[in-house]
Design a protein around this nucleic acid. Structure first.
Lengths: 210, 210
DNA sequence: GTCTATAAACAGATAGAC
DNA sequence: GTCTATCTGTTTATAGAC
């Protein structure tokens, strides 16, 4: 909420550290040092390490919400061709965000770690603010593109399949890059991944019933 | 290598703990207690916590190698229809292994954590023994099914897309289950995921050039 | 091989100066 | 708000009894 510079630096450093080795592996000392401030600032601004964790979850959720802001409203139901176009645009945006934007690696790793932990203290928060609304929106678009009901099991699983691919390309980057012979994720690599994911999307949507 | 019972118990407990909160979050005390032995056993059998980490990586790689043993040899090149059949069978097997087999959750989480860490001490090992050979085999099958060259960029990315979906369904299980309204991953849930992934596979392979 | 006891380094939290 | 200093508990590693 607050735009205090120390607060922001701490959150940024914490997402990085939490994303790399996990919450418990990151030490408040390292985070504070990387943020260019003192350890006690964490207690002052967030009440402790756990408070910092929550603040990180909120920060990521808010950042993603801003990137995904111009999503078409759920109320207007586009025709199949338009829905497919919007889905393609979203896939492009997701891949671009995840692959090329700096810092996305740590943010995605942080979120996935929290999502994987069954009793993470921020799981409810992330699900309600980040996962659920966006997954629901994608299901609605998928439904408009294919004609299947938006809340059908098949549709929900299809959307998970799609985002799962993107998440994997980001999180498993070290081995993907090694297998592909890539030195890093740059524009060319992002383009190749985008091409593949768009092809997957088109085929999964098919000509109707998927 | 050794079949010493304490060794095995320790590895099993360690994979579980490493998979849940990450390597650094797991304490040797907890691991030893869960294995029903003393902390010092870790130093004795593995030289220390790092040695245990390596032993875990080898254990998972070996276990997967056993499950994936009856893979068709790379030298014989099946015709497209047969290749598609084999791919479908492999998808079934992968989902079954990941979703329903007990303990797979922790093993997958452990491996993914190591793969995500760019300078994990066991990344090279896991890549060489677990990732590369299996990815290569899948690419060969994909090639046989579609006609595309096995080492083409598109093919390698397609295979990553496919396994990425399965990994995501496993690792992000808490939110998948919440969104799907599932209480856990059982036979019915595994069947639904398998159905979706087989549909994805069929469409991605298409009628040829994918 | 498995245990107890302990060492040395590290963690997060906090009291209080400024 | 930010710092230093310190408290308390926990970490891994290890020495040595059995």
């Amino acid at each position: 909420m607050d735009a205090h510079p120390t607060r922001i630096s701490l959150i940024q450093a914490a997402i990085r550290q939490f994303g790399r080795g996990g919450f418990e592996a990151a030490s408040t000392r390292t985070i504070a040092a990387q943020a260019g401030t003192n350890i006690s600032s964490i207690a002052y601004h967030f009440g402790g390490k756990d408070g910092l964790r929550i603040a990180c979850a909120d920060a990521v959720a808010e950042r993603v919400a801003q990137v995904a802001r111009p999503l078409p409203g759920l109320q207007d139901r586009p025709d199949p061709r338009h829905a497919r176009l919007l889905l393609r645009r979203l896939v492009r945006r997701i891949v671009t965000f995840m692959i090329v934007s700096p810092g996305a690696s740590d943010a995605v790793a942080f979120v996935l770690r929290e999502l994987a932990e069954p009793d993470s203290p921020v799981l409810d928060r992330l699900y309600a603010t980040l996962i659920e609304p966006r997954h629901r929106a994608l299901c609605a678009l998928w439904s408009a593109a294919t004609g299947a009901p938006a809340e059908a099991e098949e549709v929900k699983l299809a959307v998970f399949s799609l985002v799962g691919q993107a998440v994997y390309f980001r999180v498993a980057a070290p081995i993907v890059q090694r297998r592909m012979g890539w030195r890093h994720y740059g524009r060319a690599e992002a383009r190749a991944i985008t091409r593949r994911m768009l092809a997957n999307l088109d085929r999964m949507i098919g000509d109707g019933d998927g």
